[in-house]
Computed example of a mutant assay.
Amino acid sequence: MNFLFPRKTSTIGSNLRKMWTIASVAVSIVIFLEAFNPVFDGTRPFLEKTAISVLTLWSTAYFVLVVATVPFLTSHDFWPNPTRLATDALVSITQTIFVFALVYRTYGIVGPTSETTASAWDHLYFSAVTFSTLGYGDFRPDIAARGFAAFQSIVGNLHLGMIVGVAFFAAQPERSDNHGNNNATNNE
């Protein structure tokens, strides 16, 4: 329960990151559930594309502000908590894959045959394969989705670097320059 409720020893920035993570988990759950009971069904294209743009910006901002910048804040007074950083990175990965699955459902992917109609699982699969930059080749982005696919591949590579960074922080020995002070301010 400590993750859900801010501690008095946490910084304002840490508590804001924590609340953004909780909101991002909620957004990911809603997007996942929406895939199987579509609200975005193509009947309101302007509204749907606007919502998808906002979700894509949310996902990208979460990654940049909550996940990617934390290691750069490392100093004598602040050492990231590897568990917290790994949790934030996994939330960001999940959210990015789900948001882009919604993007591909709206902008389109092309299946292996012209008769193939992509399902919600196909969009999720294509998003995960694009995120990992694996690219099996059985699906490809439609012309309108190509820019999104390229952007998602770049974001996926940045996430991979983040996971390596988390492993680096986890492998570091106990910080001696904290003089035994391991309170929440220094570890979050």
Rank of each mutant, 00 (worst) to 15 (best):
A68R: 12
L124K: 03
S28G: 14
S92P: 03
I109E: 03
A150W: 09
A144Q: 08
V99L: 05
T113C: 04
P45H: 11
F32T: 08
I109L: 04
L90F: 12
S28A: 15
D122I: 01
R146D: 01
D88I: 05
D122F: 02
I97L: 07
F168Q: 09
I31F: 05
V25H: 04
F3R: 11
V166K: 10
D177V: 09
I163M: 13
T113L: 08
I12W: 09
F72C: 07
D88N: 15
V27T: 10
E115V: 09
N181Y: 06
S176L: 14
P45I: 11
H159F: 13
P45L: 12
G180T: 08
I97H: 01
V91A: 07
T11Y: 03
D122V: 01
P45A: 11
V164Y: 14
L90G: 08
F78L: 15
R175G: 03
A86T: 05
F139H: 00
P80L: 08
E115F: 09
G180Y: 07
H179N: 13
L55I: 09
T43H: 11
T113I: 07
F169P: 03
Q172H: 05
G135S: 09
T11Q: 04
A170S: 13
N178M: 12
I163S: 05
W79C: 04
T94K: 07
I12V: 13
S10N: 06
P82R: 08
I31P: 07
N2W: 04
S153H: 01
A149M: 03
I154H: 02
A167W: 10
F169C: 09
L57H: 08
P173A: 13
L73A: 14
S119G: 02
A23P: 00
V30Y: 12
F63H: 11
Q95M: 15
T117L: 07
F36G: 09
A120I: 02
D41S: 15
M162D: 07
T9Y: 03
F148W: 09
V166G: 09
T69Q: 13
A120H: 02
H159M: 14
I109K: 03
F5L: 10
I29Y: 05
L90K: 06
V67K: 08
I12E: 03
L47N: 06
F36V: 04
D41L: 08
P112H: 14
A128W: 01
T11D: 08
A149R: 02
L158P: 00
I52K: 04
D77S: 14
Q172T: 05
S132L: 04
